[in-house]
Design a protein around this nucleic acid. Structure first.
Length: 154
DNA sequence: GCCAACGTTGGC
DNA sequence: GCCAACGTTGGC
């Protein structure tokens, strides 16, 4: 199957694309939304590409590209009582929350802002617009190419 | 299974 | 900081 495309959000105050550029690879922990989890656990494949989206930022924008670098693994933060993402209802025998490793690919010189996306007729059906609160979402190939074009990366 | 109350995300 | 959208929880 052809590689699929995704968009994954992070608040840059918490973890930015510059942090990923420094770390090279990171585990995308802390996702506590079932749809987002299902996409990571069931649908992502090693080698898929994902946009790194900076949410809650000025401006919020697609900041660059990363590659899915592992199959989904249980998120250890769910079992750590001291962690912000601790989930007392998750059973270690049957973990509730999963996430993948992502690998830095590149950072855009010209990030594509949410306003840019909303202003572009070809992107009006993007999940970023239609499902604003979903933090891991699929991107159609045509949308992927269009965002790259807006970023001047094609 | 419905739905009101509540909590969180994230744009503005 | 506000608040709309919407996901989750829990009472019934």
């Amino acid at each position: 199957m052809a590689p699929q495309y995704w968009l994954m959000k992070s608040e840059p105050v918490k973890y930015s694309i510059d942090a990923l550029a420094r770390d090279k690879v990171t585990f995308w922990d802390g996702v506590r939304n079932y749809k987002a989890r299902n996409l990571m656990r069931d649908d992502m494949k090693v080698g898929d590409q994902a946009f790194f989206y900076h949410s809650n930022h000025k401006p919020s924008a697609v900041a660059g590209i990363m590659t899915i670098a592992s199959a989904a693994k249980p998120d250890p933060t769910q079992f750590d009582v001291d962690n912000h993402y601790y989930d007392e209802k998750s059973d270690p025998e049957k973990p509730r929350w999963w996430a993948v490793d992502v690998k830095f690919s590149r950072k855009f010189d010209n990030p594509v802002s949410l306003a840019d996306v909303k202003a572009d007729a070809a992107l009006s059906d993007m999940a970023l617009v239609k499902m604003a609160r979903l933090s891991v979402q699929p991107v159609r190939p045509a949308e992927w190419r269009r965002v790259l074009k807006l970023a001047g990366e094609d």
